[in-house]
């Protein structure tokens, strides 16, 4: 790639910020560096994490999925409703997974077949999916089966919460899928230049469909973890998770224009967002200030991404515009 053999890795930005985040958190409160506390707190970010892993595929393919939180909440509500009406846990979970894939595929179909821009389609389905959840449950909450609740309080030896393990294993699998398989190459290819990909025989529409279905699948997984963690489902849960997920992906070095990004970067950035949120939590920073911080972080993430892009293209004389 680079004549000098030095390449600015997109993961560098979150990695450096993560170190700063830890130092700041440790200075803010002595409770922050307690590993048990950090591990316990991590479970509530696993749902965002799963969404962000799939969002990495979506963004690398040059699209965006604003409906992830709404898919999560719809699947969570349907699953809890089924369990409340007497369904056994395994069959309810199977329906949840199927529903998630279908919701994601609907997005994918509208985007790849009807050729509509992803941000408008998913903005609309963001409202539709949460709207259906609201119509389904109204202001009530639905309870999950007793045996299904509380996965987040179960640990592997060494106080490692089960959801964290699920997240890390999923990250590994999706990392291999994105960086080591043909499908992954295709995702990068359509994100870099869709027209060129199409003419080189890549089934662009199918790849996009697959990417959005994957996003739905991860939303279903997040929904099951959320149901288990909270024990109940409500239509207004998982509010604004799409913002955290998108922030994490962009902070992880993915280009919003597609064609660049990595699962490792997303995972590092997720830890950064989690550390920031936990840090702001122990420092008693109010929720509204947290909103401002995360919103600004998103903008900074894109800016730093653009900056890195410009730096690395400036080093390549051929890439002059």
């Amino acid at each position: 790639m680079n004549r000098k053999g030095f390449k600015i890795r997109p993961e560098m930005v979150p990695a450096i910020l993560l170190v700063f985040g830890f130092i700041a958190g440790a200075m803010e409160s002595k409770y922050f560096l307690d590993p048990k506390y950090l591990l316990d707190s991590s479970t509530q970010y696993v749902e965002t994490g799963l969404l962000a892993l799939a969002m990495t595929f979506v963004i690398v393919s040059g699209n965006i999925d604003l409906s992830v939180a709404s898919m999560t909440v719809l699947v969570a509500c349907v699953t809890a409703k089924l369990m409340e009406s007497g369904w056994a846990t395994p069959s309810a979970c199977a329906v949840a997974i199927g529903l998630g894939v279908i919701l994601g595929a609907i997005n994918g179909f509208l985007i790849s077949k009807a050729k509509l821009p992803s941000f408008v389609v998913t903005l609309a389905t963001m409202a539709v999916y949460r709207g259906i959840a609201q119509v389904l449950l109204g202001p009530n909450s639905a309870k999950v089966n007793a045996g299904f609740a509380g996965l987040d309080t179960q640990y592997l030896p060494g106080h490692v919460p089960i959801p964290l393990v699920i997240f890390l294993v999923t990250a590994l699998i999706l990392g291999v899928l994105l960086h080591r398989t043909l499908f992954g190459r295709w995702v990068f290819s359509i994100g870099t230049n869709e027209t060129a990909s199409f003419y080189s025989g890549i089934p662009a529409a199918k790849v996009k469909l697959g990417v959005f279905a994957l996003s739905g699948l991860m939303a279903a997984a997040a929904a099951l973890l959320m149901d288990s963690r909270l024990g109940v489902a409500r239509f207004d849960h998982a509010n604004g998770l799409e913002l955290d997920a998108i922030t994490a992906v962009l902070l992880g070095g993915a280009s919003i224009n597609g064609g660049r990004g990595s699962i490792l970067g997303t995972v590092l950035a997720l830890f950064l967002v989690a550390v920031l949120r936990i840090g702001m939590g122990v420092a008693n920073v109010k929720a509204e200030y947290q909103l401002v911080v995360i919103g600004s972080l998103l903008v900074i993430a894109v800016l730093s991404g653009n900056f890195v892009e410009r730096l690395s293209s400036a080093r390549k004389p051929s890439a002059a515009k």
Binding site: I64, L66, F119, G240, L243, I246, L250, I256, N257, K286, E288, Y289, Q290, L291, V292, I294, G295, S296, L298, V299, V302, L303, N306
Partner: peptide, 23 residues
């Protein structure tokens, strides 16, 4: 000028401005 795609920029300020309302 900073070339941030509109949906991302305004999604960020959607949160940031709402946070400012509370502040």
């Amino acid at each position: 000028w900073l070339k941030i795609p509109p949906i991302i920029a305004t999604l960020g300020t959607l949160s940031a401005y709402r946070g400012l309302v509370f502040i």
